[in-house]
């Protein structure tokens, strides 16, 4: 099917796009970063970051309206159902407005933190693209996915402004409603394993829409450690993406990619574990976890490493 047919579902051909269109498609998770030539534009990451923050802002601005009660009553009449509690239980806006003054004050340490995070992300990306972390199988998009998910995890795990602006669902009940808006189904971890994860010391912290590279829609779930059960444990991110069949991986295995830098403390450095299951692809960004925690996330027992 050609790209000119309405509703075509094939991958986007980047060769016919302008540089700015490719940048925007990449920011939207529609392309692999490898589809963009490095020498085409300076400060690519800054421009992509701008586009992603613009998308967040557009989401905030356009999501403020909710259906008025009069319309709910009319629709209840149209559907032939009584105006029950189901009608009055409003679905919250996808992007509830955050505190408007959150960015008003620029603190010096925030800038330094931002620079340090940017440097770390750049280093990880370079290592994944050209260095010892380069993967040896499948489509090249996994390097982009690993870099992207690690960056997003590190940004949100601080529970700061990025977390607040991205994680629009803060309870598991909200998360189930939000997940079905984003994904074809609710991830099993939200349906079945919350109590088990809580027992193991991981509390649900938030869920937000994400743009994991690839054609499938995606969401980001963050789990924070419970200091009473797992003091000092790091946060864990689970990215869930609609499985469009782009990644040819065995559904019975989990694939683990972990940085091999000997200078990095391996027990705390996050790696990316990937598996597919029931129409969804999962990317777990976390340091090495006990087997029972992995099972609570529904990761297959059999493991393969990505070199």
């Amino acid at each position: 099917m050609s790209a000119d047919e309405p509703g075509q579902s094939g991958p986007i051909d980047p060769s016919g796009l302008s540089v700015s269109s490719r940048l925007r498609a990449e920011a939207d998770g529609e392309l692999s970063p490898l589809d963009l030539r490095d020498d085409e534009v300076q400060d690519r990451q800054g421009r992509i970051a701008f586009e992603r923050s613009l998308r967040e802002a557009v989401g905030r601005v356009q999501s403020v309206e909710t259906a008025p009660e009069s319309l709910r009553t009319r629709i209840a009449g149209t559907l032939g159902v009584p105006s029950t509690a189901a009608l009055s239980e409003r679905v919250k806006p996808v992007f509830p407005r955050e505190h408007p003054t959150i960015y008003r004050e620029r603190l010096p340490w925030r800038r330094q933190l931002w620079l340090a995070a940017a440097a770390a992300v750049t280093l990880v990306t370079v290592l994944m693209l050209y260095g010892p972390l380069r993967i040896s199988f499948g489509p090249p998009t996994f390097t982009a996915i690993a870099a992207f998910t690690t960056e997003q995890h590190e940004g949100c795990a601080k529970l700061g402004s990025q977390f607040k602006s991205k994680m629009t669902a803060r309870t598991e009940s909200e998360a189930r409603k939000a997940a079905i808006q984003i994904l074809p189904k609710v991830p099993s971890v939200l349906e079945l394993h919350s109590a088990e994860l809580a027992r193991l010391g991981y509390r649900f912290a938030g869920l937000g829409r994400c743009a994991v590279p690839g054609r499938g829609r995606s969401a980001h779930l963050l789990y924070a450690p419970d200091p009473a059960i797992a003091p000092g444990a790091p946060s864990v991110s689970l990215f869930v993406q609609e499985d469009t069949g782009e990644l040819a991986i065995d559904p019975n295995c989990r694939y683990v990619h972990r940085p091999t830098d000997p200078a990095a403390p391996s027990r705390t450095t996050p790696g990316v574990t990937m598996w597919r299951q029931d129409g969804l692809v999962y990317y777990l960004v976390a340091p090495p976890l006990p087997a029972e925690v992995l099972r609570a996330f529904d990761a297959p027992d059999e493991m393969r490493s990505i070199l």
Binding site: V41, G46, R47, A49
Partner: peptide, 26 residues
């Protein structure tokens, strides 16, 4: 037709005050 191929800006949008940003975007 896309018009001129101006790449997106590279500055961090989140450094602007959200109140002003949202009002201007609206």
């Amino acid at each position: 037709r896309e018009g001129p191929d101006e790449p997106p800006p590279a500055w961090d949008l989140r450094t602007l005050d959200w109140e002003y940003t949202d009002e201007r975007l609206k």
